[in-house]
């Protein structure tokens, strides 16, 4: 599974792995949603550290999880976006909805 999920207390962390495109998104989405439904967290963190590629399917995934967390009154954080991933992400304006933590990555594509 290209996503590794762990729940600690009320925090659900979903660590994405490999490449996130239209093909990969379906299984990842289901896995995260199933765990949200059973764990009812107050904070959902999607961690992009081990993701090597993302296209706009990733935006769909994040937007969908934003809606889902809103429904249950939880917060959504996005963590460790590489320059390539951040560049795709910022096209969506998701920064206005969720906290993005770029982690150790320098924001070199922010131009």
């Amino acid at each position: 599974m290209p996503v590794n999920i762990d729940v600690t207390g009320e925090v659900l962390t979903a660590r994405l792995e490999g490449e996130l495109d239209h093909h990969a998104a379906v299984a990842i989405r289901q896995e995260i949603d199933n765990t949200i439904d059973s764990a009812r967290p107050t904070l959902v963190i999607i961690d992009f550290r081990n993701l090597t590629f993302m296209d706009s399917s990733g935006i769909g995934l994040v937007m969908g999880r934003y809606k889902k967390t809103q429904e249950i009154g939880a917060e959504l954080h996005i963590a460790n976006t590489s320059p390539q991933i951040y560049k795709v992400m910022r096209l969506s304006g998701i920064e206005r909805l969720a906290v993005i933590d770029k982690g150790g990555y320098k924001n070199e594509t922010n131009k």
């Binding site: 296209d55 706009s56 399917s57 995934l61 096209l91």
Partner: peptide
């Protein structure tokens, strides 16, 4: 439907 963001052409255009 589903979770397509509608940003495909926007990505192509900006990249």
């Amino acid at each position: 439907g589903g979770e397509r963001a509608g940003l495909g052409f926007a990505v192509m255009e900006s990249f």
